[in-house]
Simulated scan of single mutants.
Amino acid sequence: MRSFASDNNARVHPKIMEAIVKANEGDVVSYGDDIYTERAVNKFKEIFGEDIDVYFVYNGTGANVLGLGTITRPYNSIICSSWAHINTDECGAPEKNTGCKIISLPSADAKIQVEDIEKHLHALGVEHHSQPKVISITQSTELGTVYTVDEIKKISDFAHRNNMLVHMDGARIANAAASLNKGLREITRDAGVDVLSFGGTKNGMMFGEAVVFFNKELSKDFKFIRKQSMQLHSKMRYISAQFEALLSDNLWFENAKHANEMAKYLESKVREIKGIEITQKVEANAVFAILPRQTIEKLLKKHFFYIWNEETNEVRWMTSFDTTKEDIDSFVSDIHLIS
């Protein structure tokens, strides 16, 4: 049965699998000095501009940790939502590897506001305290909500006025762009973001993420940090070929748009069922809902998904590029039978 646990559970998109197979011919130079990596980097430059630096890594935690570690010193602090992946789901890797203090802000929808950030800047310049350096936001957020362009600009302007930088965890950046119907550059670089962790795995790739620096001065030490942190892939062509395919012919957008549409379809179907409460706006490819514990336990026997909050019986249902209406209809039918 179709899993609604995570977009990580989805298969590799056929066009991306085809790109991997095509790249699997003969010898090429390792560690990124190959034609596949050159072409993939050029795809990023077509989207974000020529004057950027792009580096490929294995996974999202690696992208976040290395992106943040490159632009901070151990005496700095990183401000983020309490829901942020760097705060809750990376086993302390950002703090361990950057040495920075994570300052997490409570937020009902996982989006942080300038007014909440401002309260933590009293320590600027005081040697007894960690120095706030980076505001990290997630797009789309861990609760499936999406920052608007104006919201990102407001945070970025505030950060830069206070000599801080903005990092975006874009594990689902494609879903956010599709939700807003905006270009990738418009919701990142043009909105003031300094460093972007660009997600591929959750949008149809087998593995691989990118770290994009919109100010090349910030990235001058990245290649050394990446190597030391064990994120330099020797057979880089297999990451690069995937990104080239993902960023060609609007595949990234079509994958994300379909996943988002399936989440909205799922939302519309479960709203018809008495006893289910949708707890967050469905803006990307996630549906959060509260339902009776007995229903959850019975449903889990047929469909894999995560209980998000054990105390409130809130669950998370994720859709992906290959989720179908038939998958959702079958899932909802089972909820009806159980309820």
Rank of each mutant, 00 (worst) to 15 (best):
A284P: 09
E261Q: 15
I276F: 00
A256Q: 04
G275M: 00
E277K: 15
A256R: 03
A263T: 02
L299A: 06
V287D: 02
E254A: 06
T295Q: 12
A256D: 03
K274H: 08
I296G: 04
L251H: 12
S248D: 03
K274T: 12
I239S: 00
E261R: 13
K281T: 13
V287I: 07
E272H: 11
A286V: 07
K257V: 08
F243R: 11
K274I: 10
E254W: 03
I290H: 00
A245E: 00
Y265E: 06
E283Y: 10
M262V: 12
K302T: 13
N285T: 04
A263C: 01
A241L: 10
L251V: 08
E267P: 07
V287W: 00
A263H: 00
S268C: 10
L247P: 06
Q294I: 13
N255E: 14
I273L: 13
A259C: 11
E297C: 04
I278R: 01
G275V: 08
L291Q: 05
K302R: 13
A284H: 05
V287G: 02
L266S: 12
Q294E: 12
I278P: 02
F243V: 08
Y306I: 12
F243C: 05
L251C: 06
N250C: 03
V282C: 06
S248E: 08
L247V: 05
A259G: 10
W252Q: 02
I273S: 01
K301V: 06
S268R: 15
I239Y: 12
L299I: 07
I276Y: 00
M262E: 05
N255M: 14
L291A: 10
K257T: 11
Q242A: 12
L251Y: 06
N285R: 15
F253L: 09
N260I: 01
E297K: 15
F243K: 05
V287Q: 04
N255W: 13
S248C: 00
L246N: 01
E244T: 14
F305G: 00
F288R: 06
L299K: 03
T279N: 04
E261F: 06
A241D: 06
I273N: 04
F253K: 13
G275A: 02
E297T: 15
S268L: 06
I239C: 05
L266C: 07
L266D: 06
L300I: 10
I276D: 01
